[in-house]
Design a binder for these strands. Structure first.
Lengths: 233, 233
DNA sequence: AACCCATAAGGTACGACTAATTCAAGAGGT
DNA sequence: ACCTCTTGAATTAGTCGTACCTTATGGGTT
């Protein structure tokens, strides 16, 4: 997604990373660097670099005289974009999308509220532009065009919040939205109510109405939760 | 904090990481692997492993014939616990604490609401235990004991939410709370109102009252925002 | 039970070679 | 004279292989 073949160690990670995040090795499993190097037909230096990266993601732990042991899932750096991508590509993709959608539902309303206070005129403009783009692509099976504007819309909201922690979730939201469009729910055209909500959020931000922007965004994310049968009674 | 001296490459990262996250090199700055190896008096192999780790955190980008270029702050993996620690140890620690406190204010209320539905009896018990511990240490300059229970309380909330993305923010919250106690605000004893709120959150979770748990936690985080003069009018 | 040592892993260092990419000099055309 | 394209040299990361060091483990000895 980001950088396909950035060297041999990257190539190794492309297959070893998903294997680990996919649960291919139970926690505590021990891998030997030399064996891995042999398996991937690379030198020990390259293999060591790959292991270092996995170690920095807390996927594995390297100890002398023992080897490279796979850590429990609860220790992984699940916010690492690479780890997120690997997990979304794996078997428990549905569970991932649920986790991330719940995360969205917590973050985005607050981000929208902040955006209403901090958005620049340019950001306000792009927001309405994207909302209108969503309207324009909401009928007639133009799902790809719709997705494009949807992703951009939420990205602007997160960036306009002025909080860098929120802003950095843009990629995550993009993955979730793309996942919804391509693999899971979303049958025909998108829900007209959701489209309208986006337009109203753009208006609220433009009007500097933080409370309304927050509440409207909350409605959007509640809709996303419902799509995945995550109840909030 | 986690693993002090896990090899030479770790030792290098302990000084090079903070230098980069601390803004020691403007974005686009170019480092040469050989020079760095010379500077830290390590072999090129070790230096390369360190660079790989920095690269996996998106702090730098390594390109042939160019060198190791420092990326813009907006590209860093700011959710990486290591990066968070480095930044909190740096000069713009206050800005970090603000970002993270805003993040808390978005996450924790939702997490508390979920905890009210998913917490096990054991988690409910620990929650009340920790709340009572906070009460017990809320007077008489027992700040360290108070912090201990405060951190544990919020950690349980995040874990009891059942959402792994929330659960993995436990360390971040711990850093923020510790930062508040040790360096910044918090003069004498903690705010009695905040202590009471924690007790009431524990009760709400125990009573399975999600809406109340969420609202009470929101009051806690609003208090944290106000301490840092982050207004929410 | 305490101790010690053989051993099996990762950790480090070094040197040689490869490969890609930038940059500049020069050829050629306009 | 100016611009463009080509070409080639220089530079830096990438890869490999080997030799050796360090440490934890586990079994054997006292």
């Amino acid at each position: 997604m980001t950088t396909p073949g950035r060297g041999l160690h990257g190539r190794v990670l492309d297959t070893l990373g998903p294997e680990i995040t996919g649960g291919g090795y139970p926690p505590g499993s021990v891998l030997r660097t030399d064996e891995l190097a042999q398996r991937f037909d690379v030198s020990r230096s390259v293999m060591r670099e790959a292991v270092r990266v996995l170690e920095s993601m807390h996927l594995v732990e390297s100890r002398r005289r023992v080897g490279v042991t796979v850590r429990a899932e609860s220790e992984w750096n699940v916010y690492d974009p690479q780890v997120i991508r690997w997990r979304l590509a794996g078997a428990d993709r549905p569970r991932q999308l649920r986790s991330l959608t719940v995360l969205r539902s917590a973050i985005e309303p607050v981000a929208a509220g902040l955006a209403a206070r901090h958005a620049t005129p340019e950001q306000c403009a792009e927001l309405t532009e994207r909302a209108l783009g969503m309207v324009a692509h909401s009928r007639g099976h133009k799902l790809e065009g719709y997705l494009l504007h949807d992703v951009a819309f939420h990205r602007v909201i997160l960036e306009a919040s002025g909080n860098e922690m929120f802003a950095r979730l843009g990629d995550v939201v993009a993955e979730v939205l793309a996942g919804r469009t391509h693999h899971d729910v979303m049958f025909e055209d998108p829900d007209p109510a959701a489209v309208t909500l986006h337009v109203r959020v753009a208006e609220a931000v433009r009007a500097r109405d933080a409370a309304r922007a927050e509440e409207l965004t909350r409605e959007i994310t509640v809709g996303a939760l419902q799509e995945l049968d995550i109840l909030a009674p």
